[in-house]
Simulated scan of single mutants.
Amino acid sequence: MTFPPLREELRGLLPYGAPQLPIDEVPVQLNVNENPYGPSDACVADIASAVAVAAATLNRYPDREFTELRAALAAYLSGDTSASVGPEQVWAANGSNEVMLQLLQAFGGPGRLALSFAPTYSMYPEYARDTVTEWVEGRREDDFTLDLDRARALVEERRPSVVLLPSPNNPTGTALAPEAVTVLCDAVGDGLVVVDEAYGEFRRDGTPSALDLLPTHRNLVVTRTMSKAFALAGGRLGYLAAHPAICDAIRVVRLPYHLSAVTQATALAALRHAPELLARVDDLRKERDATVDWLRDRGHDVADSDANFVLFGTFADRHAVWQGLLDRGVLIREVGPSGWLRVSVGTPEEMGAFREALVHVTEEQR
């Protein structure tokens, strides 16, 4: 046996991660879909006060069931759906990444499979790998939508225990039609359909949330995060809404006291400032739509986006374009289908720097 005794299927693999470069070297960083606007001064003060209170009791374990936080998250979600969400329907963990991993720990595993439709979030197959769950990928159409007949047929053929559907999709930004959720919830039988709405707050007017369908499908799970709309990427708080039996099942696989008292206090403080934090979402949506229009006016292919990022292309040598932007102090993401690039939506000044750099790079390559 080779030391260390790593699982054979993990040997030679590199850990997940987008490039992280010093801000003084690359001043415009638009590659990991962060919110460019930090929490307000009032929110920062509230977080600091709440954490100070929590710090006085750090000799004790935190509330294992994070009861107050579940109630606050349920109240927030109930305001974003036609259905009422109760605390018993909410589960939270350290980022929506851990929520997804816990779902596959509980409902995947040896002899079971998880399924999604490419292009899709690149971490999904890693969750499957880490939980020894078989991974199956269908394909999206050229416009990144789902052919529902083909999607249903694949689900009925493979019988996954978990279907993972990001909406808006990462890396494309496209949202699922509500009928797609219904079709796949019906097709999967007793399996779960997980609609990953990490970017749900950024969806365009008229694009519904899968939360509306929770009362209709007991096997539907809708995940969210506070990393994006709440400008809390450093806080690491993701959560889901689902049937109470699903939340109870996840409790079996969660680690003891997995949400620290500091995390709970931080998230509760941010939720108290939801209106002011979410006001920035409208600004980012406008900047996103303006970016889509500008890119299309320049002759680029652009995927419709309901997220805080834009996928655009296509380039014969996308890496050269990516490198050219980086050389000019603008970092975006080389991800998605061949020939495409993804830019996160930043401040107007950051997007202006992106546009200027892209014009120079593309003109040089003609």
Rank of each mutant, 00 (worst) to 15 (best):
R318W: 08
Y199I: 03
A290E: 05
A93D: 07
A231Y: 01
L237R: 03
L284R: 03
T131E: 12
V44T: 07
G234M: 00
T347C: 03
S344D: 03
R236D: 00
R150W: 15
V193C: 13
A265S: 00
V281C: 07
A18Q: 11
R272A: 07
R224Y: 12
R150C: 13
T81Q: 15
L103K: 02
L325T: 08
D301E: 14
V44W: 06
R7I: 10
L146M: 04
N219E: 06
D304T: 12
Y37H: 02
M123G: 00
V292M: 08
L13T: 09
R203T: 03
P166Y: 03
N308R: 05
A241Q: 10
M351Q: 07
A187M: 07
C43T: 00
A93N: 07
A72H: 02
Y199M: 02
D46S: 12
E356P: 00
E363I: 06
A320V: 06
L176T: 03
W135R: 14
Q89W: 15
G336P: 01
A353F: 07
A229T: 00
Q365R: 11
L113N: 14
E65L: 11
A245T: 12
P178K: 09
A269K: 08
V181W: 05
E356D: 05
L326H: 04
F354T: 09
A151G: 14
L211K: 05
T120P: 00
R251I: 10
A92E: 08
R251W: 11
T174N: 10
H300F: 10
V183T: 14
H217V: 14
P178E: 08
L284F: 01
G313E: 07
V44R: 10
E88L: 08
P348A: 02
R150I: 15
N31F: 05
G109P: 09
G313L: 10
R296F: 09
R342T: 08
V99D: 03
G138N: 09
V221S: 01
V90F: 04
A106Q: 09
T131K: 10
T216Q: 11
L176D: 01
E8I: 06
L277R: 00
E25D: 12
V361D: 11
M1R: 10
G235T: 00
G138V: 09
H273P: 01
D212W: 02
F309P: 03
E126P: 09
F315G: 05
V28I: 12
Q264P: 01
A54M: 04
A93E: 03
D306N: 13
V361P: 12
P5M: 04
E34D: 10
A45C: 02
F230R: 14
S78E: 11
D196A: 14
A303R: 08
A180K: 09
I47T: 01
G17H: 02
R342Y: 07
D149T: 14
D190C: 09
V85P: 02
V253A: 09
F144A: 12
L214Y: 05
V310P: 15
A198W: 06
V310S: 14
T266P: 01
D248H: 13
I332Q: 13
L73T: 02
V321F: 10
G12C: 03
D149H: 15
D301N: 13
V193W: 07
Y37P: 00
G313M: 04
I47Q: 07
P110E: 14
E8W: 14
P62S: 11
Q20R: 11
L331D: 07
C185Y: 05
T81P: 15
R296A: 12
G109W: 06
T145I: 12
P337Q: 15
G238K: 02
W135T: 13
T347K: 02
A316Q: 09
S161D: 13
